[in-house]
Amino acid sequence: MLRVIGAGLPRTGTMTLKSALETLLGAPCHHMAEVFRNLETDPPAFLAAARGAPTDWDAVLAGYAAAVDWPSSAFHAELAERFPDAVVVLSRRKDFDTWWTSCNDTIFTGMDGGDFATETWAAMIAAIWDRTFEGAPRTDRDAVEAAYHRYHERVRETIPPHRLVEFTTGAGWEPLCDALGLPVPAEPFPHLNTTREWHERTGDVPPGGVPGPSKES
């Protein structure tokens, strides 16, 4: 049963949130990284959900205490209804420009390609994108920015304030611990999947070289 539902977009510190929530909850957190390990089951399940099929969320997310990042964050409203006691975390970068730059430096370079990109995978990504950004072309910065702001407003309109935690990248343990009623761990808050780490892991070096380590996921 989910205790935390992530509504934040990719590249808003979701890998860091995954690690932090696994520490706090002592159980796995779903993330796009999990989809790569479950390519036979996750993409078809989330694609069907994006197309409006009835979805057994208990089965899709069995064994997880939290879910952040795409594809699950695109279904935060459905998940919030199914798990009414769960906290909803809206992770955010400081502004659209920071988020846009991070995405273009990382996930936008290979979201549709690679050995993993089956027809079902590509269809899932397209469906999740359209669901989140209302069909805005990925190359149209202005259209994406407008849809980006509307998305955040939809989250705020859908999730009651007492359940919603707006979590800006770098906020640390306190907002999560306060919402969950848990003590702050003694260990430092994690900091994972920076732009540099993403490129080092994928071997995809962008024009101009790999950015410095200060850009967070």
Score class of each variant (00 low, 15 high):
L21V: 08
A86V: 14
I128E: 09
R150L: 14
T118D: 03
R82H: 00
L24P: 15
P137W: 09
V210L: 10
S102I: 09
Y148M: 12
P160K: 09
E81F: 05
F36C: 05
T14Q: 06
F83R: 00
A171T: 04
R37Q: 12
C29W: 11
E197M: 09
P213D: 13
G212F: 01
H162F: 11
S72P: 07
P206S: 10
F133G: 01
E187W: 08
I159P: 01
T202A: 04
A27I: 06
D58T: 00
I5A: 07
G114D: 04
E216M: 06
T120R: 13
G26T: 15
D142G: 12
P28S: 02
P211V: 13
E134R: 15
E81W: 05
H199E: 05
P54E: 15
P188T: 07
A62R: 09
V88T: 13
P211K: 07
V210N: 12
H191P: 11
R51C: 12
K18N: 14
E187M: 13
A143S: 04
W100Q: 08
P207Y: 12
T118F: 04
R3E: 06
P84V: 05
R138W: 01
T12V: 03
A86N: 10
A127P: 05
P161C: 01
R201S: 11
R37F: 07
G8H: 03
D204R: 11
D85I: 04
T202C: 13
A67I: 02
K215A: 12
I107G: 03
P175N: 10
L61G: 03
R163V: 08
T195I: 12
T195D: 05
F36I: 09
A74S: 04
A67F: 02
V210Q: 10
R11G: 06
R150Q: 13
T118C: 01
E166N: 06
L180Y: 03
T16G: 09
Y151M: 10
T14F: 02
P71E: 11
T12W: 02
G110V: 06
E81Q: 14
A50N: 07
F108Y: 13
V88M: 08
S102W: 05
I5N: 12
P188K: 08
G203A: 06
H31M: 15
V155C: 07
Y148W: 14
R37A: 10
F116L: 04
A126Y: 14
D97H: 15
F96E: 06
L182F: 06
G203S: 08
D115L: 12
V68L: 00
P183H: 09
R82M: 05
I5H: 10
A146V: 00
A7G: 11
M32F: 15
A143H: 02
C177N: 13
A74Y: 01
P161M: 03
E216T: 10
D204P: 02
T169W: 02
H199D: 01
L192P: 00
